[in-house]
Amino acid sequence: MIEFADVSRSFTVGDQQVAALRNINLNLAAGEYVSIMGPSGSGKSTLLNLIGLLDRPSSGTYKLDGGNVSALDDVQQARVRSEKIGFVFQAFHLVPRLTAAMNIELPLILAGIPPDERKTRVVKLLENYGLTDRADHRPDQLSGGQRQRVAIARATSMHPAVLLADEPTGNLDQTTGKEVMNLLEQLVEQKVTLILVTHDPLLGGRAQRQIHMMDGQIVSDNGSSS
C-alpha cells in the first residue's frame, strides 16, 4: 500500500546540506501495524511527515495505493490527506476555541460533508471514544487522556486507510498512555494501517513489525515485505 523507492530528504541548514533520510526503500501493506523507532535525529519524524504528505522527498518516489503521490500538486495532496490519512500528534493539536465535538467535526467540515451526515458521524465517534458527556467542553477543560481521545476521534472521522501517530503517549501518564494505545490498536483490527513513531522500545515492541532507524537510514526491519 505504501511504497517508498529510493527516497531521500535533505535540508539546507545555513549553507550546508543535511541529509535527514538517505535512500529509503520501504513497503507497507494495508492493515499493517508498524512501529518506527530510533533516537532523536534519526529521521523517523521526517519519514512520518513524508508518509503523511506534509513534506516532499528530495528524490525518489512515494506510491500510495499504487498512485505516485509525490508527483501530485498541493491541492491534490491535500485531498489525499483528507481522504486517506489521519494524524495523531504528541501535542494533540486541538483547536483551543472549539469544543470537543467541533474539533472532531473539523476534518468533515474541511472536506465539505453535509451538516446532517457530519452530525451523525460526530455523535457516533463521541460515543465510541466515551466522550459523549464531554462533547461541549473545550480542550482546556479536558484531561490529557480525553484530549488525545478527541484527537484520535478526529483522525478517524474521515475513515482514513493510514493512521500516523507521532509519540501519541508522549504527553500522557502510564495508565492513560496504555488506554490510548489500546484505542489505536483497536483500529488495526478494523484494517487501518497504523504507523507509530516512538523512541520508547517498550511501546514500539507492541507492533508486529518494528523498524529501527539511525542517521536517516533503516538499520533493522523485522517485516518481510521490505
Binding site: L54, V75, A78, E83, I85, F87
Partner: peptide
C-alpha cells in the same frame, strides 16, 4: 501558526 498547520494536516489546501 499551529492551527494553520493542523488544518493543512487535516486536508485543507492553501486556497481554503
Amino acid at each position: 501558526v499551529k492551527e494553520i498547520g493542523l488544518l493543512k494536516a487535516l486536508g485543507a489546501p492553501g486556497r481554503q
